[in-house]
Simulated assay, not measured.
Amino acid sequence: MSNGSFPPEPGRRGGTLAIVLAALIPACFAGWLLWSSLGDAKDDGADGVGAPTTSSTSSPSPPSSGVPAVPSPPTPSGNASGKRSGGPSGKPLEGKVVVIDPGHNPHNRDHPSQIARLVDIGTDEKECDTTGTATNSGYAEASFTLDVARRARTLLEARGATVRFTQDGDRPYGPCVDERAEIGNKAHADAVVSVHADGAAAGERGFHVILPKSVRGGGADTSAITAPSRRLGERLRSRFAKATGSEPAQYIGDGSGLNVRGDLGGLNLSTVPKVFIECGNMRDSRDTAELTDAAWRERAADGVAQGITDFLNE
C-alpha cells in the first residue's frame, strides 16, 4: 500500500470474461439461424427429389434481352405425312352422300293395284314394285331389307356420311322403281346401294351383287355409271364376303358374285353409281338361318357399309 496502488480484486478478470462470452454466444447463435434460413430459401424443390442444384461457382445467367420467345408452330393434325383424313372432323366419309334403297316395302301387299301399274324403265315397262319374297316361316324380304339398311345407315353416319333412304317403312307402298332411281339422282349421291334378298330354289345358297348393264334408250343411259358401279360392286362383294363369311352364289352367272343386268329400272334410270345386293336366298333353310339372325344382319350391314366406304375412299 506504500505506493498508493490498489491490489487487484480477487476474481475480477474471470468475471469480465464470463460477461463478454454471455453476450457473444446468443448473437452468434442468432447469426447462424439467419444464415441457415437464407440457405434453405434457395431450394425450391417440393421434396428435394430431382430439384436442381446450384453451384456456388456457376456463372450468372445472362440478362434478358427483353424480346419474348417465339413459340414453335403447332403440329398439323392428320397422319404422319400431314395429310388430313376426311373433312374437317377427320371422319372418312364427311361430305359424301349415300343413298340406301331398302328393297320393296312392308306395306306393298296391302296395295296390289298400285304396285302392279307399269312404269317406264327406259328400255321397257315394268311393274311399279313387287311385294318381294319371304322365308318359309313368313319373314318378309321387305322387313329384312329395312333392318339391314337401318344398321348400315348407323355405321355410315358415324363415319360422317349423309345417308338418305328411298323409303323407311313410312310410305303406304313403293316407291316405284323409277322414283327409287330418281331419289338417288336428285341427291347427287356418291353411291347408291339397293338392299335385297333372293327367292331362288331351295338348295341354292350365297349372295351376289347386280351391276348395271350399259344401256341407252328412252330415259335410260348408263354409259357414264357402268365403270364406277362395277368398282362399287367389287368393293361390296369383297367386304360382304369378309364380314359375313358368305360365299358368292353359284347359281347366278359364273359364280363370281357379280351379275350384270339391263332389265332393272332402278339401275337403268340411275345417273349415279348404283348396285343391288342380294344378301342370300330366303328359300334356302341354311341361308334363312342367317338372314333371320340379328347378329348376322349386323355383320351384313357392316359389309355393306365397309364396301361403300372403300369405294368412296378410292
Rank of each mutant, 00 (worst) to 15 (best):
D147T: 07
R151N: 10
Y251W: 15
A149M: 06
E234Y: 03
A305F: 12
F276L: 15
R159M: 14
E314M: 08
A241E: 12
G95R: 11
R286S: 13
M1L: 12
R299C: 10
A197N: 09
T222R: 14
N108L: 00
V215Q: 10
R153N: 07
P175F: 02
G11C: 07
P73M: 03
A27H: 02
H196K: 06
I25Q: 02
D287C: 02
K126E: 15
D129R: 07
K42I: 08
G203D: 10
R205H: 12
D170G: 08
G39H: 11
R239V: 00
L156H: 05
S143R: 11
V275Y: 07
R171I: 00
G233Y: 01
N313E: 15
D129I: 08
T288C: 05
T166L: 07
Q250K: 12
C279S: 14
A224R: 12
A158H: 06
R299G: 10
R12L: 12
P175N: 06
R216I: 04
I25T: 05
P63H: 10
F311I: 04
G303Q: 09
A80Y: 02
S55R: 11
P8Y: 06
S37K: 15
S56H: 13
L24G: 10
E141L: 00
G217W: 09
L312P: 05
G217A: 03
I225M: 14
G218P: 02
F29C: 02
T133G: 09
S89R: 14
A305N: 04
P172I: 01
A227C: 06
R13K: 11
L291R: 00
P8N: 06
V99N: 01
K96G: 08
G307Y: 06
R235D: 14
L17E: 11
R164T: 07
A301E: 03
G303C: 05
T75V: 12
S194E: 13
R164N: 13
E204H: 14
Q114N: 09
S113D: 15
V195A: 04
I210R: 08
G203F: 08
H111N: 14
L258Q: 00
D40Y: 13
T288A: 15
R84K: 10
L312D: 06
A249M: 00
S223P: 07
T222Y: 12
G255Y: 01
N259D: 15
G11H: 14
R235M: 07
R150P: 00
V99I: 05
F165I: 04
F165A: 11
P102E: 08
L155E: 15
Y173M: 05
G86Y: 07
S238C: 05
F29S: 04
S194C: 09
H104C: 06
N79R: 12
S65H: 07
T226W: 10
G78V: 01
G257D: 04
G87Y: 08
L21W: 09
S270A: 15
S56F: 15
P73Q: 04
T131S: 07
G262P: 08
L269I: 06
L24A: 13
L312Q: 08
N136R: 14
G95T: 07
A69T: 12
Q167C: 01
G87A: 11
F207C: 00
A158W: 08
L211P: 00
S270L: 13
S285P: 06
I100C: 03
L38T: 01
D168P: 01
